[in-house]
């Protein structure tokens, strides 16, 4: 039986179609719904086993990336989303989704072993303007910390020419106070890092993505949904055909989540 994925859009979101495509390629059925409809009918969220907050420039990102959409989600949809996570629903938030999630109280989530607070927490990490102050589209080699709790990146081999992901953003510099950084490491919430020498946006500890303590909610600046087929790889015409017969890492991330969602016995 297929699992259903919910993709939430809002004015200025523009990576909803590619995210939907990635979920479909991984075997999910997808519905894309505007935030406004979900805010009025939060119970709609209950019917889904996977959730995606896509990339884009929500409400223009004119104050700061994700700020307005995060404000709306805090006010209108936070309880429904937390309920979904609590019943085991994997959630992915690439790029603008990540910027929204960290400001909407969805990441880094509750303290390890703790409950989600009923009201969204104040942000404890930030995605700030890239250190060189410009938007940049590039592929970078990435790595997953060995003990990461994240269910999305589990078991994926990022060692080799396939171990790259595309990024495209102007505000992706991960910043947090040292105690928080230490805690993220201790609670295995660092889900993805740019490799040494590839930290193009100047993130603390080269962090490209984090997850909540359960590992279900993944926020990341790169776009794994843009690496679901080999011809998206920037050097695909040079890659060994044997490598190209394997599943691209981006697609594998979505397969991991779909498999996980299917294994969780939620209606």
């Amino acid at each position: 039986m297929s699992v259903r994925a919910l993709i939430i859009t809002a004015p200025g979101i523009n990576c909803d179609a590619e995210l939907a495509h990635a979920f479909r390629e991984a075997g999910a059925l997808v519905d894309t719904l505007p935030l406004l409809r979900l805010s009025r009918h939060p119970a709609l969220v209950d019917g889904f086993k996977l959730i995606g907050l896509p990339g884009g420039f929500s409400y223009g990102d004119d104050i700061a990336a994700g700020r307005v959409l995060a404000t709306l989600i805090r006010k209108q949809l936070y309880p429904a989303l937390v309920a979904a996570i609590e019943r085991g629903c994997p959630m992915i938030a690439p790029c603008n989704g990540f910027q929204v999630a960290v400001q909407a109280g969805l990441l880094p989530g509750p303290p390890p072993g703790g409950e989600w607070p009923p009201e969204p927490a104040q942000p404890s990490v930030a995605l700030s303007i890239n250190s060189n102050a410009t938007f940049r589209d590039c592929w970078t080699p990435v790595e997953v910390p060995e003990d990461s709790a994240c269910i999305w990146t589990r078991g994926i081999d990022f060692d080799g020419p396939q171990g790259v992901l595309p990024s495209a953003h102007g505000e992706g510099r991960f910043i947090s106070a040292d105690p928080m950084l230490r805690q993220l490491g201790l609670s295995r919430q660092i889900a993805l890092c740019y490799r040494e020498g590839s930290n193009f946006n100047g993130s603390s500890r080269r962090i490209a993505g984090i997850c909540d303590p359960s590992g279900l909610v993944l926020g990341l600046m790169p776009h794994p949904e843009r690496f679901t087929r080999w011809t998206q790889h920037p050097e695909w015409t040079r890659l060994d055909p044997a490598l190209r017969s394997q599943t691209p890492p981006g697609l594998q991330m979505f397969r991991n989540a779909v498999e996980h969602a299917a294994s969780v016995g939620v209606a």
Partner: peptide, 23 residues
């Protein structure tokens, strides 16, 4: 110029404006 544009949004990219090793 090229890298200031999100030339891969929508996920349809096959041959990018910069190609080869490291683009």
């Amino acid at each position: 110029i090229i890298r200031q544009y999100d030339h891969e949004v929508q996920g349809g990219s096959v041959v990018k404006p910069l190609v080869g090793i490291g683009g």
